[in-house]
Structures are given as C-alpha cells and as structure tokens.
C-alpha cells in the first residue's frame, strides 16, 4: 500500500513543478512486476523438476520410499524452520525500515544472512555424509541400488543443489541490499529493492516448503 502511494505522491509533486522532484523517475509497481515475472520463470524451472519427480514417483513408488529412508527428517525439519525464520526476518526488516528504524532493519537482515549460512552448513554436512556412504555418481552404494532409487537420489542432488544455489544467490542479493541501506540508497520511503529481494527470498523458502515433505517425509 505505502510503496504505491509514495511513488504517486512523488509523481504528483513532479507534475506541479515542485523543485524537490529529483526522485520522480521511479516506478515501484513496474519494478515489482518485473521481479514477479522473474519468479514465474523460476516456478517453471523448479516446476519442471517437480513434474519429473511426480512422474518417477508414480512409476517407482516403492523405490522412492526405501530410498527416502536414507534422508534424515530431523535435519530437513531444522532446515525448514531455519528458512521460515529467515523469511520472517526479511519481512520484519521491511517493517523496521518503514518505521525508520535502520538499526533494527539491519539486525533482521543479518539474522537472515546467518540463517542462510546455517541452512547451507546443514546441507554441506548432509551431502558429505551421503557421499561418504557412497551415494554419488559411480559410487559403490549407488551402483547397487535399483533404478528407481538411483533416480530418487539423482533428483535429490539436482533439486536440493539448485535450491542451495538459489539460497547463495539470495544471500548475495540481500548482501547488496544491506550495502545500499547502509549507503542510504534504500530508505524508509524508497525500499522497493529491499521488497524485491524479499520476494525472491520467500520464493526460495516456498520451494523448500515443497522439497521437504517430498524428499524427507515419504514413509
């Protein structure tokens, strides 16, 4: 609500010849629409893989169940909570900035970054454990698995790997935003960039919301 009308007010000043109108060239709605269009391409990217998952699970229901026993639901649940918390702090950062509390805004964004690191560290331990067990291309454990189990782990590595890559990109995105807030390029009445980085981060969260039950909770 606020972002739209702020831009509107800025425009109104510009048209009546107000001299403070240096910030007229701003289109917050257009900017938000741009990031949503990008999020749709992300949905189709991950969506394609979810369809692949659904099709193979339909073909190999038992192999998927037995292969999923190798994954640790506790670790998956912890990572889910970590990502949900990081999403909360992003949105709290926006409220804090609206209330002109830059310190609280930055604290929240630091917590987001910290959650991102925890998520990736968990993922690192998870993957190294799997590789240690011999579950990797041409690995001894994978060679002995059935075709359906091999497909399950292929999808597991590709989907959680691509998701992890998105977490890294999101952290970099938010890192730039934090720099801009520090430099006062993003302020309480001009924060669409923060909002956009938040939208990206929430999409990454939503993808994990689906990955978690589909890979960790099959019994």
């Amino acid at each position: 609500m606020k972002r739209d009308s702020d831009a509107h007010v800025a425009n109104a000043h510009g048209h009546t010849g107000d001299h403070s109108g240096g910030h007229v060239h701003r289109d917050d709605i257009g900017s938000k629409m741009g990031i949503w269009l990008f999020l749709f391409t992300e949905l189709l990217l991950f969506g394609g893989m979810f369809i692949l998952y659904a099709a193979y699970r339909f073909i190999y229901p038992d192999d998927f169940k037995s292969a999923a026993l190798e994954l640790d639901p506790v670790l998956g649940a912890v990572n889910t909570i970590v990502l949900l918390t990081s999403s909360l702090t992003v949105v709290l950062a926006i409220v804090a900035l609206q209330k002109k509390n830059i310190k609280l805004c930055m604290t929240n964004l630091w917590i987001t970054q910290f959650c991102g690191v925890i998520f990736l560290v968990n993922k690192y331990f998870e993957w190294t454990h799997k590789i240690h067990l011999g579950i990797y291309p041409k690995g001894p454990a994978l060679e002995e698995m059935t075709q359906g189990q091999t497909v399950f782990f292929g999808l597991y590595y590709v989907m959680t790997g691509l998701h992890g890559l998105h977490v890294i990109v999101g952290m970099a995105f938010i890192g730039f935003i934090m720099y801009f807030i520090k430099k006062n390029y993003i302020t309480y009445n001009n924060y669409q960039k923060l909002e956009n980085s938040g939208l990206y981060w929430h999409l990454v969260d939503v993808i994990w919301i689906f990955l978690f039950p589909l890979f960790y909770l099959i019994h």
């Binding site: 999403s87 909360l88 992003v90 949105v91 909002e195 938040g198 939208l199 929430h202 999409l203 969260d205 939503v206 919301i209 689906f210 978690f212 039950p213 589909l214 909770l217």
Partner: peptide, 18 residues
Amino acid sequence: ALLIATIKTLLVANYFMH
C-alpha cells in the same frame, strides 16, 4: 503433505510476499 505445503505457501505468499 501437499495440502499442508499448499497452506504454508498461501501464508507465505499472502503475508510475507504481501
């Protein structure tokens, strides 16, 4: 599982993503 994930997504989209 998918129903709960969908409810969670609706919450994230409606509130966190405004």
